[in-house]
């Protein structure tokens, strides 16, 4: 999957995502659309897709494997994948790049890249957006810019989101506040990542832009780069500081986490993420010569465990097998293998 590829600063930035929302003139926004409107918009999207080298799929016609893939690829919600709300996807050759139809807006172009690269994620999404604008009547006003279903995105219609792994900042007293204020200065927002089932993912945060008016696309990307760079620097110095001052503690936690992940036979998601945080915290600044992993392994572990569709799709007795299967997946990744 795309998140296994090389990226910049992947020790801190798991991925960067850009969403560009666009709407077609002549239809109400999704919350007010009739079934006929929805079918119409899907038909138009399908038509446009042909000339862009994208394939159209209806969400209500997806089989379990396809849903699993979309969950893994875009982190699409389980509820969204399993509703009959006349929604669809346009998918192409580039993994992590696609269009969701009739979700929050008529067209939500999603572009995800590994690591810290808002410029690349934006460029891919924007190229698609411009193609839609050329072949469809896209809702736009000189005063507000691109008209979106939600007031918070009107303007450029662009949302940039970085998924950040910040165990150093989280374990440093007061650092989360400093970071929140730092982001706020540029009109960005930091929120802790929470799974759809309500479990908070320790150490993982989402950084996203609040401003879509009053700045150009270039300024938005430049600000993203600046804010994310600041966070990377802060996280790095927090990790270094903790690993220097609490060397014995961190080394102990690191190797304990390493051993549990490598040999576990049953494990739940929150525990994996908690243990992975110790690995991430120590990987660069303690002596790891007795362990045989790198940031690539740590990231793969983080991503694969978080993006397991089966966690939601399982019911009853099958659910009890999940922790054993998860443990097997974790062991395999720790040993450099890949089951999926």
């Amino acid at each position: 999957m795309w998140y296994e590829n090389e990226g910049r600063n992947t020790d801190v930035v798991l991925s960067t995502k850009v969403i560009i929302n666009r709407n077609i003139k002549g239809f109400p926004f999704p919350p007010k659309m009739s079934d006929a409107d929805r079918e119409n918009v899907m038909g138009m999207a399908r038509q446009a897709a042909g000339s862009m080298g994208l394939n159209f799929v209806r969400t209500d016609e997806l089989d379990d494997n396809a849903k699993k893939d979309l969950y893994d690829q875009f982190f699409s919600g389980y509820a969204f994948l399993n509703s009959n709300a006349k929604t669809g996807y346009l998918l192409g050759k580039t993994e992590g790049l696609g269009v969701i139809i009739n979700s929050t807006d008529h067209l939500s172009i999603i572009s995800m890249v590994p690591g810290n690269d808002a410029a690349l994620a934006y460029k891919r999404a924007d190229d698609l957006a411009a193609k839609f604008e050329q072949c469809m009547d896209i809702a736009f006003s000189d005063r507000f810019g691109f008209l979106t279903s939600q007031i918070k995105t009107v303007g450029t219609g662009v949302q940039i989101m970085a998924t950040l792994a910040l165990p150093g900042i989280e374990k440093t007293q007061g650092a989360v506040q400093v970071l929140g204020q730092r982001a706020e200065k540029y009109d960005w927002q930091m929120i802790p990542m929470t799974r759809p089932d309500g479990i908070r993912e320790n150490g993982i945060y989402i950084l996203s832009n609040l401003a879509t008016l009053g700045l150009t696309e270039q300024e938005l990307i430049d600000r993203a780069a600046k804010v994310i760079d600041d966070i990377i620097k802060l996280e790095d110095s927090c990790r270094k500081n903790i690993c220097t001052k609490k060397k014995a503690v961190i080394e102990d936690q690191y190797y304990r986490a390493y051993a549990v992940l490598k040999y576990c036979r049953r494990i739940e998601v929150p525990e994996v993420l908690t243990l992975v945080n110790w690995l991430r915290l120590g990987q660069k600044y303690i002596d790891t010569s007795d362990a045989d992993i790198d940031f690539k392994t740590i990231n793969k572990l983080t991503q694969k465990v978080r993006r397991n569709y089966d966690d939601y799709a399982r019911k009853g007795a099958r659910k009890r097998d999940a922790s054993a299967e998860r443990a097997a997946l974790v062991r395999d990744i720790m040993r450099g293998g890949d089951r999926t």
Binding site: A119, Y122, K123, D126, A211, T216
Partner: peptide, 26 residues
């Protein structure tokens, strides 16, 4: 809540000519 309501983004139909300003790899 955004501090500004003036639209400064691009017009429809042509992708923004954005560039990456990142210079140093870690």
């Amino acid at each position: 809540r955004q501090g500004s309501s003036e639209y400064l983004g691009r017009k429809p139909g042509k992708a923004a000519e954005t560039t990456s300003n990142v210079t140093e790899p870690v």
